[in-house]
Structure formats: structure tokens, C-alpha cells
Design a protein around this nucleic acid. Structure first.
Lengths: 342, 342
DNA sequence: TTGTAAGCGTTATCAT
DNA sequence: ATGATAACGCTTACAA
């Protein structure tokens, strides 16, 4: 069965292909009756325009691309929803693209920009460190949302924007909060910091806080999760290992809420009460934090602000109203039921 | 800055465009030295082939498409991972496409099939009821995974495949389990069943079970969640309303684990102990079910089997080894700590 | 092994 | 308001 094309529709309607194109694309310079006739035939035949051909020819596609590393992470859900809303409001189309863990998001963006004629690109998730030159190969504005970056790097500073919390600062905030509650033996569940990442910044904040308060970093209280398994499971097993190691701790700081959920379960299984025996804190402020038992003390990222400013910024950049910016929003320490004064 | 094209590369290398194309696509009929020279220039210039142009011309793209409604639903994560693995193993490329809630997934598929020259399509999430004629417009094999359907419909039966659990049967299994534990006043948290969906099948199973055991359906125990808000919040609020309605119940069956998590929290807030005062059951067997406190009794969907068979089937269909099938796998009732005998 | 040229299915330009 | 026709950037016969 031969694919039906615009030519075929034109033939059946007894009009030229450009007229059909006009009908499809809602151009004004077309007789409404002709248009109706064409639309009828299109519906009848089930004709669907080929997007590859359209993208190839089209120059003015108002399209913004969102590349998400870890798209199944519910953390991104509210951000994506906001992006969708604002994009539509501006009359732009959205291309949401999932980036595999092993893929380099900038490479994917490079491809997608050409394929879809993107006008702007938003990165969610993934690395916080990118080659500025490569970034500049993207001929359209680029924003990293919820991914802070090393903006002391003057080369990179003007190659892209960032809208995020300061992960190191927020992390320190949480650890200082725990210290303020009287904790000195504070364990941490973090990821391997072989790559520069948000998580390594959170680990940094932990170290800073301890340091500032004259608490010596105890290697035995630093546990790295194995990235390869799902996060809750990860948090569970690593916490179990921590407990079984016999190391003494009165608080456990997890670099994400999801890890913390696993930790809560592991502690419960070991008969360790939260917060009576051990305080537990998370990071992110995901939905689960306020629904788990006990509710989790966490750093809530201001996702509404972040998404809003991201959208404002991307359109300003597209319209060349201003240059690249690095916006930092404060996180909010939400006290749950998982921490207590000792 | 003019986009760099294959012509430009050819010119710079002093070769024809087809030679460059050969280099890019790893064709064998090319001098390794020429190829190397070309690849060097490509790297140097940062040239990236335009995918729209490639897809337009290409006829043999070995590509399978996965359309996911609700891609941020972690339920799909393990399935998608399996699909990725198997697709790669077969030397196929994967096009993962997010379908908006308001979009019709079949329409999106129709577009994508042409754009990307798909050879097969897998649907995850979304409606279980589709127009068979429209489905047949897709010229490639179609499978609905984890979405059972009304296969008594003879027209549709041969237009697509399904690989799933029988949601009505599994749901009945769970409710009968609760009945077996001595519960008679069993409330349910479900979605509005205005649309034919998986959830409506689960509700059906609930009714069947009650009916079979001579328990009259009590409208006051049937609570519909408001779809528009996030699921846990949804489960929380609806359960709260149920509690405040004053209706008496000893068990609460939630049509998804995520709803159940919200329910657990609402019960805890009301000072109702689980499972001592009320038993709670979920559905799906998501990761959270085994990490929440108390662990959730749920129906675990055999996602490994489902994904495996889906992949086997799609390739068989592509290679025309066999026709459409409707595979049903049994779910597993996992006893957690959230239910008890009364 | 390599180059030339003809499409792929659209949209944009330019006549009419 | 409409129709030819030339791109868009690539792959793939077909020639050389």
C-alpha cells in the first residue's frame, strides 16, 4: 500500500499541491470552499503529512526543545507541565526528548536542533558540566533548568543560562539544620562523585557544614549508593549496609528524597525508630516526601519559580531581549516528622 | 551562520556527496583512508547530518516506536528499559515518544510512523479502546503493552496485539482476598469511569467480587479521585473525604499503588492504624509498594514477562512469523503489611 | 572505489 | 486565489 502524499490529495481534489499545503497550514490566502473540499478529502483518505519533509523545508518552525535525562523521574513532572503550558501560550510547539543515560545530552541537542529547527533548548537533568564550545555550536539559546553549574567559568558563563537552586548552599543548610538540632554524627547517602554533578555539590555542602562547625568528616559515615539499581532500592540497601557496618550515627542525610524513602524502610526493618533513634533528611521536596510515614524533612526546590523563570528567560533569549543569565533560587527547608532535636 | 551540510563537507574533502554519505553510514564500499579523511573533517567542522532529510529519503530505517502516555509514570520505567535493550539487540533504533494527556495516541502514531518510517509500534498507557479502522491505517504491527482490551471485539482482534494482565480478574482476586480475610465493608478508590480504561476494568473486578460473595455494593464506599491532581495527593484527599463522610469500612482497595500511598498517609493523619483498624490494598506492584510503611499488599504485574513477550511478539510480527495475539499474564498477589485478617 | 543525479514529501517563491 | 516549480539535505541507484 503506497503511502498517500500531498500530490495524491491535490490530484483527487483537482488542485495544485500548493493549494493543499495552504489548506493544511491554515494560510489565509485560500478560498474557504476550496479549503473545505480539500479538508474533506484529507479526512476521507486519512492523509497525514510527513513531518520529516515538513521540517526539512520549513524555516520558521516555532519550536522549543526539552531534553530530559531521566524522564521517568517524577521530579521533572511539574517542570515539564509548566513548560508545556507556557510554550503553548506563546504559540510555540514543544519537542520533548528523552535522553538515554549513556547519551551526551548536548550531542542529542545538536541533532535535534537541526532536525526540528528548534529555536531554544532546555535541559533537564544530566551533567552540570559541559564544553562551552560545543554548547556554542548550538545556534539557539540554551538553558539548564534545576542544574546549577560552575559559573566562575567565564567562557561558559555566556554560552548558556542556568536556573536552579545552589545545591551546595542548600545542602549545607540542611546539614547545619541537623547540627543545630544537636547532631554531630551525621551520615550521608550520596552517589559516587566521579562525575561533576549536582549530587557532588550536595556532598560538598555536607562537607562544608561539618567543617564549619568543627566536625571531622568520618569516612565511615559516608556511603555511596550504587547507581545502577533503582533509587529506593538503592537507598534501602546502602542504609542497610551502613547500619550493619556498626558505625554510630544519630542523623542520616540523603541527597535525594527517593533515597531517603529507601532509608526509612531500612531503618524501620532494623527496628531503628525515626526520628526517636535517628533523624532522616532528604533533598528535593518531591511529592513522596510529604506522603511517606514519617513525613520527610527535606529541601524543597522552588520548582514553580524555576520553571517560570526558565520560560521567561528562554523567550527573552529567543527574542534577543537579554543575554544569558544564571539565576539562583533559594530552596525551602521543610520540617517533616523525620528529624528531631537531641 | 549558515548551517553546514553534506555538500560542504564533500567540497572541503574534495569528494562527492555520496562518498561522504558512505562514510557517515558506515558503508563498506569506501576506501578506509578516504573515510578517515572525511571523518576528520566532520569532527573538525562539527557537522551533524539532518535527521529530517535522512528520514525523508531512507526507506529501510529499522526503527520501532514506543508511544507512552504518562511517561513520567515510574510504572513504565522497567518496561521501557527492557524495550530499549531488546531493540538494540536486534539492531533496531528506538523512537520513544511522549503522548500528551489530551492527545490521541493513535493519531500521534500515525504521524510518527511516516516521519520516522517505523516498522512497529508499542503503546504504553492510554486508552484500551481504539477504533480498529484507524489502527489498521497504521501499516505496521501494533502492540498495546500492559493495556488489556476487549478482545471479544472480532474486528479489533486482528488489528493489534495486547500483552497484559487481565485487570478485571486481578482486581477481583485482590478483593476476594480481602473478603477471605473477613472484610465485608470494602471501600474502593477509583477513577471516574467515564472512559473505557484499565481502571474501569479494575472497578469491574471489585464489583464482581462483591457480587459473587453476596455483598451489596455500597455507593458510599465508592470514591472517585479527581484526575487532575497528582496521584498521591489525590489518594490522600479522597481518602480524607471518605473518612470524613463517616462511612464505615474495614478495608480500602486502591486501584493503584500511588493512590494507596496517599491513602496510607490520610489514614495515619486520622489516627486510623493500618492494618489494625483498616486494611489497605493497592495495585501494580510498583517499587514504592515495598518501601512504604507499612509495606503495601498489592497485585504485582509481571512486567518482566510482559516486556519480554512484547518484544518477541513485535519482532515476530515485523518478520511476519505470526499474526496478532492477545497474551494475558497472571498478576501476583503480594502480601504486604497493610492488610490483616479480621 | 568514487561521482553524478534523481528523488524523498513538503513549503516557499513567483508567476498568473 | 491558485498553480508550477525550485529548493530543503540527504540516500541511493547508476555510471564511471
Amino acid at each position: 500500500m503506497a503511502e498517500i502524499t500531498i500530490r495524491e490529495i491535490a490530484k483527487r481534489c483537482g488542485v495544485g499541491v500548493s493549494t493543499v499545503s495552504r489548506a493544511i497550514n491554515n494560510h489565509s490566502d485560500i478560498n474557504p470552499e476550496t479549503k473545505q473540499r480539500i479538508m474533506d478529502v484529507i479526512k476521507e483518505t486519512g492523509y497525514i503529512p510527513n513531518n520529516s519533509a515538513r521540517n526539512l523545508k520549513r524555516t520558521d518552525a516555532k519550536c522549543i526543545g526539552v531534553l530530559v535525562k531521566g524522564i521517568t523521574n517524577p521530579f521533572f513532572t511539574p517542570i515539564i507541565e509548566k513548560i508545556e503550558q507556557e510554550t503553548e501560550k506563546k504559540g510555540y510547539a514543544l519537542v520533548l526528548r528523552h535522553v538515554e543515560a549513556y547519551e551526551n545530552e548536548v550531542n542529542v541537542a545538536l541533532e535535534l536542533e537541526k532536525e526540528k529547527r528548534l529555536r531554544g533548548i532546555i535541559f533537564l537533568g544530566g551533567s552540570s558540566k559541559h564544553d562551552a564550545d560545543k554548547l556554542r555550536q548550538l545556534n539557539v539559546p540554551v538553558i539548564f533548568a534545576t542544574i546549577g553549574s560552575d559559573i566562575s567559568d567565564n567562557l561558559g558563563r555566556n554560552a548558556y543560562s542556568t536556573v536552579s537552586v545552589d545545591d551546595a548552599v542548600e545542602s549545607r543548610k540542611m546539614v547545619e539544620y541537623l547540627i543545630g538540632l544537636g547532631h554531630r554524627k551525621i551520615a550521608i547517602l550520596t552517589e559516587g562523585n566521579d562525575q561533576p554533578s549536582i549530587v557532588s555539590l550536595r556532598y560538598e555542602g555536607y562537607c562544608d557544614a561539618l567543617n564549619k562547625h568543627g566536625i571531622k568528616l568520618d569516612e565511615k559515615l559516608v556511603k555511596y549508593v550504587d547507581r545502577r539499581i533503582y533509587a529506593m532500592q538503592n537507598g534501602y540497601e546502602t542504609t542497610k549496609a551502613l547500619i550493619e557496618s556498626g558505625a554510630k550515627f544519630t542523623a542520616l542525610f540523603c541527597v535525594s528524597d527517593v533515597l531517603a524513602v529507601g532509608a526509612l524502610r531500612a531503618l524501620a526493618d532494623a527496628g531503628i525508630r525515626v526520628p526517636e533513634d535517628v533523624s532522616v533528611a532528604g533533598f528535593d521536596g518531591q511529592e513522596i516526601a510529604q506522603f511517606c510515614v514519617p513525613r520527610l524533612t527535606t529541601i524543597r526546590q522552588p520548582l514553580a519559580d524555576i520553571s517560570e523563570e526558565t520560560m521567561r528567560l528562554i523567550f527573552d533569549l529567543i527574542e534577543e531581549k537579554r543575554g544569558h543569565k544564571h539565576l539562583i533560587f533559594p530552596g525551602e527547608l521543610v520540617e517533616g516528622e523525620s528529624t528531631r532535636k537531641i
